[in-house]
Design a binder for these strands. Structure first.
Length: 844
RNA sequence: GGGUAGGUGGCGGAAUUGGUAUACGCGCAUGGCUUAGAACCAUGUCCCGCGAGGGUUGCGAGUUCAAGUCUCGCCCUACCCACCA
């Protein structure tokens, strides 16, 4: 055993080669006496370069997977590429490259980089979503949804990104901008393929209860789905000489209906009504266009035109309310038969609820703002039940309302309420026979009274899945004039994405594939007449909605995955990924899985038992890494300079992995980890023949702590426990046995250096196939404990004593201490609190 | 405006869940080895005070023998969502 320098570069590539040759990371579908454990990390997007974020995502989870494997689990830890989609295509176009060529070159390069991490990925199960062997099954699964009416094509208002020249799903628009390119998104009416995710809204919420997920993730999914329960209530419209249709409004607060002082229609809804659209507003008895009762039609039409021209961004930036009254028309409040004005305003959204609201300015801030601006009536109908709120509304000096002054107090109260609305609960006033009732309790009764219907609405919309872009999975549908949308027959799958020269997005609402006439023109599979292929491609999130299923059976040519293999691995035991996917991929794939479950294609209703969102690595300056800020850390440089083991262990050490924190990369701190590994390395030349008892105790404490901590992924403290042990070992000496245990504990973090030393000190076989050390509870039982002595809750001294010592003995030992004596002399001991083996507090 | 998570040294962060606050690492300081460096070694490092001692977990109150941890009020930060009735 020769003394040598720690040289990670040589060691790391040496072991990576050997592990490959030994097939060390190949996972079988079941091992005798071992439980299967599926540990999943969101697969890589082939953006071209492995950045620190990838390292953080994969290498820390690799530590966890290795830990589980050493603990005796049969661990599946696969890797693949989410290779289709906008970002790859946009990047390829920017680099004037064919998207296919660009993507596959990136994948090859990234595979190499991923290898340098020394992760235990089972590459034999690799999945690439743009491979026909994979997307054949994406198409097949889609057709199952289509056949069962879970996929449909419909004309709706959709998000259109003029820069990416395609539609986007709601989830892919943030703050009115395209999630991918950042361009402003427009609203367009287009016929698009959609999936009925809204049918699953309730189950997507209720099944969250079954999952072992952090509450914040559940909350934001619930929030996104946005369930709200309320009622639809009809308001009759009235004009001097014409009957007009009924308008339905959606409200969560039917209890406030007596306070409705006007009605507001969204521009979309108003258009339907003034044009006499039959769908939502029935034509009047005379069959005449309903718009005839309206006296300022031009004004309204020009307002609607303007409002619809606004982009999302303009709406958001300009919260100043605008609107126009529909003159000559009144609505009848069904609660009190009052005639109230009808307005059009774009603060009411066309796509939510019924696209029309009853405005209650006294109890809704938005309505209040609008009423103030246009000088509309404000009528309070609830007085606060909350005393505090009540008191802020009563002028000082006025006694609290009692029977005598009730009327005057109420009068003042209502005046105040009309001046500034408060979202309230309390007692109803101005509400006819419901006066005095509790506002919440009365909701069902009032709803019934006005002929309303209980109704639940969701913010979430159906998932728009077609894209007018080249680089995606073709939608396996053939359009025939007679038979309409016909599925491609199973034997003809996959519909191969043709190689084309002219792949640039066209912007005319059609995919570039539409120009490939010899591909587009086909015979109808049903009737055999001339037909055309669907030319849109799938949203990438379709590809990623089921990739984890394919990992269980990646080479199956007959099925997307066999039931048997899925039974062995699904549901995923642990899923780690980015927080940005909480309301995208994570929601989509839960839905997708549920749909497949309903069709009997998968066994489980939920795909992921346990989910954790990881945090973010920031640049050294504390800002999000970006090329423009020049703070991008290239992990390859650090691997080259300090070694992969150092980078992996540093990323584990940087902060807790079980929280969505953001941690700045510190070029200084990482050196501390390298020093630590150097010290582990040097220790091998200084092994003692005999075990030191203190070191032995520390070792077993370390085993215990690390085992507990790794389970919860508070992995940063695991590294510090290892450091503490090495500090101790350097001071007091370790023997070979203890050192080997240390190496095993360190092996998941730093697989190369530990393997090298493991062999260097005379072991055969891989350290990674060793069993995880177990601690001996007897060895961590302390014979001596340090007990803190407090006087009146302040630390005044410590005593050492035998573990398990009783209160009386501790008390007399404590009182005997000189530094305690002087405190006690000044008073009489009244009470004593003793926490076993830890603390005694003497209260004077 | 809504939801969620947080505020602990110069910095990243610990704290057995109510029991010695600042573990571990970085940085810094002093000394050493070295021609020189530091990715080396040793010691020190929350603040005030010469000292006994006192103070300290965003601010203010409260509960408790004991509070970073529990309760209430306020302030601030980050992320996600946002005219969703």
């Amino acid at each position: 055993m020769a003394k040598s320098e720690y040289d990670p570069k040589t060691i790391e590539s040496k072991w990576q080669d050997r592990w490959d040759k030994q097939n060390l990371h190949k996972t079988s579908d079941g091992k005798k006496g071992k439980d299967n454990e599926f540990i999943l990390v969101e697969f890589a997007y082939p953006s071209g370069d492995l950045h620190v974020g990838h390292w953080y995502a994969f290498s820390v989870m690799d530590i966890y997977a290795r830990f589980k494997r050493m603990q005796g689990k049969n661990v599946l830890f696969p890797m693949g590429f989410d290779a289709f989609g906008l970002p790859a295509e946009n990047a390829a176009i920017k680099n004037k490259q064919n998207p296919r060529k660009w993507t596959y070159e990136n994948i090859n390069y990234m595979r190499k980089q991923l290898r340098s991490m020394g992760a235990m990925f089972d590459w034999s199960r690799e999945v690439v979503t743009s491979d026909p062997e994979y997307y054949k099954w994406t198409q097949w699964l889609f057709l199952k949804l289509f056949e069962n009416n879970l996929a449909y094509q419909a004309e709706t208002t959709v998000n259109w990104c003029p820069s990416c020249k395609t539609v986007l799903a709601n989830e892919q628009v943030t703050g009115g901008h395209c999630e991918r390119c950042g361009h402003e998104v427009e609203q367009r009416k287009m016929k698009q393929w959609q999936l009925r995710i809204t049918d699953y809204a309730d189950r997507l919420i209720s099944d969250l209860e079954k999952l072992d997920w952090p509450e914040p993730i559940k909350d934001s999914q619930k929030n996104w789905i946005g369930k709200s329960e309320g009622a639809e209530i009809s308001f009759k419209l009235k004009a001097s000489s014409f009957k007009l249709p009924v308008v339905k409004v959606f409200t969560t607060r039917p209890d406030t209906i007596f306070g409705t002082t006007y009605l507001v229609l969204s521009p979309e809804k108003a258009l339907e009504i003034i044009q006499g659209n039959k769908e939502l507003a029935r034509p009047n008895d005379l069959g005449r266009p309903v718009g005839r009762g309206i006296t300022n039609k031009e004004e309204i039409e020009s307002y609607i035109k303007k409002a619809k021209g606004k982009t999302e961004l303009e709406r958001q930036e300009n919260k100043e309310k605008t609107g126009v009254e529909i003159k000559g028309v009144k609505a009848v409040n069904p609660a009190n038969k009052e005639e109230i004005p009808v307005w059009v305003a774009d603060y009411v959204l066309g796509g939510y609820g019924t696209g029309a609201i009853m405005a209650v300015p006294a109890h809704d801030e938005r309505d209040f703002g609008f009423a103030k601006k246009f000088d509309l009536k404000i009528k309070p109908v609830i007085i606060p039940g909350n005393k505090q709120v009540l008191n802020t509304l009563i002028p000082e000096g006025l006694p609290e309302p009692d029977d005598n002054n009730y009327k005057s107090a109420l009068f003042i109260l209502l005046g105040r309420l009309a001046e500034s609305p408060t979202a309230l609960e309390g007692r109803l006033v101005n509400s006819g026979k419901f006066n005095g009732r509790d506002s919440r309790e009365v909701i069902p009764e009032i709803t019934k009274f006005v002929g309303g219907e209980r109704k639940t609405t969701y913010k979430m919309r159906d998932w728009v899945i077609s894209r007018q872009r080249y680089w995606g999975c073709p939608i396996p549908i053939i359009h025939c004039n007679k038979c309409r949308a016909v599925p491609v027959s199973e034997k003809d799958l996959p519909v191969i994405l043709p190689d084309i020269e002219d792949y640039l997005p066209t912007g005319d609402g059609k995919s570039p594939l539409a120009k490939v006439t010899n591909w587009v023109n086909v015979k109808c599979p049903k009737c055999g007449s001339e037909a055309k292929r669907e030319t849109d491609t799938f949203d990438t999130f379709i590809d990623s909605s089921w990739y984890f299923l394919r990992y269980t059976d990646p080479n199956n040519e007959k099925e997307f995955a066999s039931k048997e293999k899925m039974k062995a691995w699904i549901p995923v035991d642990f899923y780690s990924g980015g927080a940005e996917h909480t309301t995208m991929h994570l929601l989509y794939s839960r839905f997708f899985h549920k749909a497949l479950h309903d069709l009997g294609l998968v066994n489980e209703p939920e795909p992921y038992v346990c989910r954790m969102n990881r945090g973010l690595i920031l640049g050294p300056d504390g800002n999000k890494m970006s090329k423009s800020k020049g703070n991008v850390v290239n992990p390859d440089d650090y691997v080259e300079r300090l070694g992969a083991d150092t980078v992996r262990t540093y990323l584990a050490f940087i902060g807790p992995y079980n929280e969505v924190g953001s941690y700045p990369w510190s070029p200084d701190s990482i050196i501390g980890v390298r020093r630590f590994l150097e010290r582990v390395w040097k220790l091998k030349d200084h092994l003692e023949p005999k075990a030191n008892d203190e070191v032995e105790t520390k070792l077993h404490e370390t085993i215990k702590s690390i085992t507990e901590i790794l389970r919860s992924l508070k992995i940063n403290t695991a590294v510090s426990f290892l450091m503490e042990f090495v500090n101790k070992a350097e001071k007091s000496g370790v023997n070979k046995n203890q050192y080997e245990t240390l190496l095993k504990l360190l092996a998941p973090f730093s697989p190369h250096i530990t393997e090298e030393i493991w062999h260097d000190i005379g072991n055969e076989g891989s350290i990674h196939e060793e069993k995880w050390p177990e601690f001996d509870p007897k060895k961590i039982e302390k014979s001596e404990v340090t007990i803190v002595v407090q006087v009146n809750g302040k630390n005044r001294g410590v005593i050492s004593a035998k573990a398990g010592i009783d209160e009386e003995s501790v008390k007399s030992l404590a009182i005997a201490l000189p530094e305690i004596k002087k405190w006690i002399e000044s008073g009489e001991v009244k009470r004593v609190f003793y926490v076993k083996n830890r603390l005694i507090n003497i209260v004077l």
